[in-house]
Design a protein around this nucleic acid. Structure first.
Lengths: 226, 226
DNA sequence: TAAATTTGAATTGTTAACAATTAATGCCTC
DNA sequence: GAGGCATTAATTGTTAACAATTCAAATTTA
């Protein structure tokens, strides 16, 4: 996609993080002129940004009907976690081959931040930091393709968590993240695979992907035939 | 990205397959007005298509300097093959869980086409069919996320093959594809992993990623200090 | 009253003119 | 001639007006 210039990138980042931070909820309409006013820019800019967000899967964009924050389905969520597992596994292996003292220190510092956010009860920050941890791993792996895919998946996951998270969830992933760093440094592939799998499964199982938010039943199905 | 309408999709597909078919070579400039004339459309359409191709990694797009067919580096190629290995492995596992008689028949029919193209010596068609085989697997897997990533990787790979293929390459992948189908139906994960790994390695090793098209040495390095 | 139709406002999509940038050419100076 | 400078042409980027579409409310009709 066309490289976004400075102004476009700014708008893009703000909308994107607003989605990630749950300020913009799934289904929220995103009208062009309204966004123009808010960001003091032109419709051309907004259109480009919305187009890109749509391509990212964060926004639904239907012809002549405008854009709204995406509402991923249960199927989307399931597919995403399968993909994420395989990408994370590959990233971990590459990262294990390339990790050095400096990057290990980075990771540990990041985990400290996560712990602090957890202790402070700052849930929003915890979610953001958790995503960043994985992107940090991707950066250490040095593989730009995997990094891009992971960034894509992490962003979409935040929408999925919003839609499908079980109400009681405690989500204290920094412990698991520490385990990943240990396994990375130990260089044991099997152990690494296991801890990655457990982590992704842990995230997925904190969600209610079964029947809670099913594809909406039609009015027929609800009221019909009695 | 904004859903492309019919006219845009047509232009997009034609440019994309022209790149895949080696009609447009890496580095070829893609001027907007020229493309307008060729496809009898407006600049707006062309710009959207070029933007999307740039996002796909098939086109380089620099501000105020226009677009040209991308020239992936050796590093790009290496990263891509690592990613492709992991994606293909995941697709194969999902496909193995979902394959039925009808889809197995599809795959076999496809392999017949590949064999025919090979016997006819139609190299261009062989490359296209080989990519399609993998996309067919992705479709069988039912995972839309993995399918999209694979489509992305396959498209970019064709550029890489053009740039880095060893001159003598015989490329008769339909035999390996048949092996993949067998392993799929056998449902043996370890065997499947092995055949997938061998296949991707086979493609990668048909390339000259070492020193043939290296990062260009600076003029200093070539002429300097003697 | 309920369905169908019309109307108009709100919104998105497209286009064509204008602006800005880059690359190339010719000119002048030394 | 080589290098520097101005001019010109080619190309990309932006914008603002116009067109098309959708949605909802108001009106009509049965």
């Amino acid at each position: 996609m066309a490289r976004l210039n400075a102004a476009e990138t700014q708008v893009y980042d703000r909308i994107r993080s607003a989605i990630g931070d749950r300020q913009l909820l799934p289904g929220q309409r995103l009208r062009e002129v309204e966004l123009c006013r808010i960001f003091d820019t032109t419709r051309g800019t907004i259109r480009k940004v919305l187009a890109r967000l749509a391509f990212d899967g964060l926004v639904d964009h239907q012809p002549n009907r405008g854009a709204s924050v995406a509402q991923p389905t249960v199927k989307d969520a399931a597919d995403l976690f399968v993909a994420r597992h395989c990408i994370e596994r590959a990233i971990a292996r590459e990262a294990a081959a390339r990790i050095d003292d400096a990057s290990a220190a980075h990771l540990r510092a990041h985990i400290d931040k996560e712990r602090a956010a957890h202790d402070a009860g700052d849930r929003q920050r915890m979610i953001a930091l958790s995503g960043e941890f994985h992107l940090l791993l991707a950066q250490i792996s040095g593989n730009t393709v995997l990094r891009r895919y992971l960034a894509d998946l992490v962003a979409r996951e935040s929408l999925i968590i919003q839609l499908y998270e079980k109400p009681d969830q405690g989500s204290c992933s920094h412990g698991e993240h520490a385990g990943i760093v240990e396994a990375l440094l130990a260089g044991n592939e099997a152990a690494l695979d296991a801890v990655i799998a457990a982590h992704i499964d842990g995230i997925a199982s904190s969600l209610d992907l079964e029947p809670v938010h099913p594809a909406r039943p039609s009015l027929e199905e609800v009221f019909g035939s009695r």
